[in-house]
């Protein structure tokens, strides 16, 4: 039976869709069968970030309205075996589905997938309510910025009020240089403000912008970002993985020095 995870944030633009695409890719590379569901009806992006927008024939709303079978709306990923996308509709809006319809749809997907990951839209209105309706657990994405953290707190409150108790934090776009100059919070600072457990830290990296523009997720590749996403996937599966030292500018000697000072 599949596990249903909602990726949400409250604030827009903090990295929910990018995170969803990379988690899906990472879990599929770990031989899991994963379906990514884009619930941002009217402003769909998950298909773009996965590079699958030219393959959309049917979408979530078609499946929910019975115009097609759910399996007909699923799109197999170009590169990863075991990764599927259920795209949102672009010509409708978030009132096109109800929470109950989402529950029915997700129950059907549970039979065939290890992980069902719902990419939640920004906000706290109908789109959010639809996305969390069938979720077993939640991943809250935030950047280490005051406004994003405020919205994340609101979202966590709403998740708790909707009986979703397994809520974990992903701190996205952490800029080590800004942290060093005292201009940005650390992941630990965010954890303290929000009072929930951390599950992933993803550093700011230009490679991510390139990957979303070209539709090629980088979870599992050699870069620090790629490794950060893979570690996040392992933790989602319940394994304990140490957090990466994101300070990439440290020279070889500085790191040796640390070894002696420990």
């Amino acid at each position: 039976m599949g596990e249903v995870i909602v990726v949400t944030s409250g604030k827009g633009g903090v990295g929910k869709t990018t995170t969803t695409a990379n988690i899906g890719t990472g879990l599929a590379k770990l031989n899991k069968k994963v379906v990514l569901v884009d619930t941002d009806i009217g402003l769909r992006n998950l298909d773009v970030v996965l590079g699958l927008e030219n393959r959309i024939v049917y979408n979530l709303v078609d499946a929910v309205e019975g115009n097609c079978k759910v399996s007909q709306a699923l799109i197999k990923d170009k590169k990863c075996d075991g990764l599927y996308l259920l795209p949102a509709a672009q010509t409708r809006d978030k009132d096109a589905v109800t929470p109950d319809q989402m529950k029915v749809l997700v129950e059907e997907l549970r039979k065939d997938f290890d992980y069902i990951i719902l990419d939640c839209p920004a906000g706290i209105e109908q789109g959010f309510k639809n996305a969390i309706a069938a979720a077993d657990r939640a991943l809250v994405v935030t950047t280490p910025e005051v406004s994003a953290v405020r919205d994340a707190d609101r979202i966590i409150g709403l998740l708790e009020a909707n009986d979703i108790k397994n809520v974990r934090l992903i701190v996205n776009r952490l800029n080590i240089d800004m942290v060093k100059h005292g201009n940005m919070m650390t992941a630990q600072d965010v954890v303290e403000v929000l009072s929930i457990d951390l599950i992933g830290v993803v550093p700011y990296d230009e490679k991510i912008v390139i990957s979303t523009n070209t539709g090629t997720p980088l979870a599992g590749d050699d870069s620090i970002v790629g490794q950060a996403y893979m570690n996040l996937c392992h933790r989602i599966m319940g394994e304990e993985v140490e957090y990466l030292d994101l300070d990439s500018k440290k020279g070889f000697f500085a790191k040796i020095g640390e070894l002696f000072n420990k």
């Binding site: 405020r150 919205d151 707190d153 609101r154 966590i156 409150g157 709403l158 708790e160 403000v193 009072s195």
Partner: peptide
């Protein structure tokens, strides 16, 4: 328990809160 952003709590008496009151 904590009171998160967007939530509120009221009482006519005094209040002892075992938790945080978050911004908002």
């Amino acid at each position: 328990g904590s009171i998160r952003s967007g939530q509120s709590f009221e009482t006519a008496k005094s209040l002892v809160l075992l938790g945080d009151v978050k911004a908002g």
